[in-house]
Design a protein around this nucleic acid. Structure first.
Length: 578
RNA sequence: CUGCCCGUAGCUCAACUGGAUAGAGCAACGGCCUUCUAAGCCGUAGGUUAGGGGUUCGAUUCCCUUCGGGCAGGCCA
């Protein structure tokens, strides 16, 4: 298949519009708002008629007469001021579903392949990962998987925080701990390690001085300090990898390219910007002034925004590092598209970064630079979630709690399963629930962190989708003589509704990739699972006979494959039993 | 002060370049397991989309304004 369902309908209706003298008018195809309107509706006629001063109903009639949907639609209707309602032919739906069966990619059309750099997770290695790191990590991971599935070449970049003054402090503290013979033990708890180091830094002037010296030594390439720094990073990265493993996130060491990797490039970037006349000195700092971001003063005058790339003391900032990273991603990695899955609060920074990158020629217009922002995490009281002492929930703790709750539930529902299997189920269900709770929300919205919402196992949750899969697995355990080439026949309304949802998979993925919105996929999968549950209640599979039984088994098979694939793209496992 | 984001059912969230009667889940109430796993299905109830104006065939969506919340804004990231 070369076109998704939406693309197919769009091209046919657009062609009809052109044939009726409305060249270039968008067809605006959408899933129908109500069942009595059919399966899809074309809304483009009204706007086209208006701009051409035509009667919309009359134009709609011309378009319907000109439309070529033979073998695709069974009914076309004009309704209201000029909607065209399209009802798809059951044979067409069946044929479409049939084509997806048995294909590893479920016959999803490949978009024009791009090389996409996805910058995500990017934790600060000085501390342990907490719930605040969840969104970037799993949103980025889901986007990377979807983009890859659609034929793009994805390069993940874990832009970890491994550089800066705090690492001087940490290595200094590591030395001290080693001298006391407790270096390895101290590193067992990163959070505690950081807290103690910070305490020493605040309370002991001599230690603080030593820490600052270490920063200088680190940047100067001092071998001993560098070795200690690397040991610290190794421990910290190992901790991250444990969390990634637990989360089912595909990031590896090969994807890590931290801030430190750009260290040598920073003076080069600043010199380059100076050479291009973009940077001027202001109050001792090297600054790019941006008229695009000028702010109004009270007296009505305007000041351009200052984008500082080098401090008075000669030090560099994250702005500089990010410029170096863009240069690397475009020039070395040959990116066509760069996604930054980073907290929405950094929106202004990225806007400015992108603007400077364009001016400096680091990213030509052909390269798409996108800040995939996401909302701030709030507490259950609706106020910002505290990140200060004691306020954070460690990611590892959240995942453990989720797994425990899931274990209690599965043990209650299915006590006869061996414990090892119940543990496996609990892990997949618990982790899946946590990830889905996050991924299913529009990433632009702020995020309310709630144990109960996060760990719910009913309704629109990952376990609901996993359960649908499990039910299908149960059917196939009992089915005998499954004919994997049997024809799909859609007679019952529930069968038809299920098939309609199944053939929409590709469109769901396209919109995820285009809008960088993973929750579109969640909504899709939830709708699919819901349609399946209804089908399951209404249409007995094993008790039916002949062609009908074979057809229903085929629908089950495709549903299972779609759920497995779709959940897989979200980084969530499916289960044979639960 | 300037700019960006947000405000939808009691709670958590949807609503795809503006589309028809704003949809789900949770919580509440009522049904459905001798028939493929009840983590399910069916039903009832719940709304002046923060308020007010405007644009048009049509607005949760776009514009203006007020209120309320969040965030960012020259040497943190």
């Amino acid at each position: 298949m070369s076109q998704t369902l939406l693309q197919l309908l769009d091209s046919r209706v657009s062609a009809a519009l052109s044939a009726c003298g409305c060249e270039g008018a968008p067809a605006i195809i959408q899933p129908a708002g109500r069942p009595e309107f059919g399966d899809y509706q074309a809304n483009g006629v009204m706007a086209a008629a208006k701009s051409r001063k035509m009667n919309p109903r009359a134009l709609a009639e011309q378009v319907v007469a000109a439309i070529d949907l033979a073998g695709i639609a069974s009914k076309l209707e004009i309704a209201g001021p000029g909607f065209i309602n399209i009802t798809l032919a059951p044979e067409f739906l069946a044929q479409r579903a049939q084509a997806a069966l048995g294909q590893a990619d479920l016959a999803v059309p490949k978009a024009a392949a791009q090389r996409v750099v996805v910058d995500y997770s990017s934790p600060n290695l000085a501390k342990e990962m907490h719930v605040g790191h969840l969104r970037s990590t799993i949103i980025g991971d889901a986007l990377a998987r979807v983009l890859r599935f659609l034929g793009n070449e994805v390069i993940a970049q874990n832009h970890v925080g491994d550089w800066g003054t705090q690492f001087g402090m940490l290595t200094a503290f590591l030395i001290e701990s080693e001298q006391g013979g407790a270096g390895d033990i101290a590193l067992n708890d990163l959070e505690d390690f950081y807290r103690r180091a910070k305490q020493r830094f605040d309370e002991d002037e001599a230690f603080a001085t030593r820490a600052r010296e270490y920063v200088v030594k680190l940047q100067g390439g001092d071998a001993q300090v560098n070795a200690l720094w690397k040991r610290f990073l190794d421990v910290s990265l190992h901790h991250c990898e444990e969390v990634y493993q637990e989360l089912g996130v595909g990031l590896t060491r090969a994807d890590v390219r931290g801030e430190s990797a750009y260290n040598d490039d920073l003076p080069v970037v600043v010199r380059d910007l100076q050479g291009k006349g973009l940077v001027v000195e202001s109050q001792g700092a090297q600054v790019v002034f941006l008229d695009e971001f000028k702010t109004k003063n009270q007296d009505g005058s305007e000041t351009p925004a200052a984008y500082i790339v080098q401090k008075q003391d000669g030090g560099y900032l994250y702005a500089t590092t990010d410029l170096a990273a863009i240069r690397y991603r475009v020039a070395q990695l040959k990116a066509d598209r760069v996604l930054y899955v980073v907290d929405a609060r950094q929106g202004l920074h990225f806007n400015q970064l992108f603007t400077v990158s364009r001016k400096a020629g680091y990213a030509p217009d052909a390269v798409s630079l996108e800040h995939v922002g996401f909302g701030v995490m709030l507490g259950e009281d609706g106020k910002p979630f505290k990140t200060r002492s004691g306020g954070t929930v460690k990611l590892a703790e959240l995942l453990q709690e989720a797994t425990e709750r899931a274990f209690a539930l599965v043990s209650e529902k299915n006590p006869d399963l061996p414990e090892a299997q119940r543990r496996d189920i609990a892990r997949a269900v618990g982790i899946g629930a946590v990830k889905y709770a996050d991924l299913s929300k529009n990433r632009n919205s702020d995020y309310v962190f709630s144990w109960d919402t996060m760990l719910a196992f009913e309704g629109n949750t990952a376990p609901y989708l996993q359960y649908a899969y499990t039910r299908i697995a149960g059917v196939f355990r009992k089915a005998e003589g499954v004919d994997t080439s049997a024809a799909i026949v859609l007679d019952e309304p529930a069968e038809r509704a299920l098939a309609l949802e199944l053939v929409r998979f590709a469109d769901a993925l396209q919109s995820v990739a285009r809008e960088t919105m993973p929750h579109f996929l969640c909504s899709y999968l939830y709708n699919l699972a819901t349609q399946f549950m209804r089908f399951y209640e209404a249409c007995p599979v094993l008790k039916s006979e002949g062609e009908q039984r074979a057809s229903r088994l085929q629908l089950c098979r495709l549903t299972a494959e779609t759920l497995r694939t779709g959940l897989g793209l979200l980084g969530i496992e499916v289960l044979e039993a639960m």
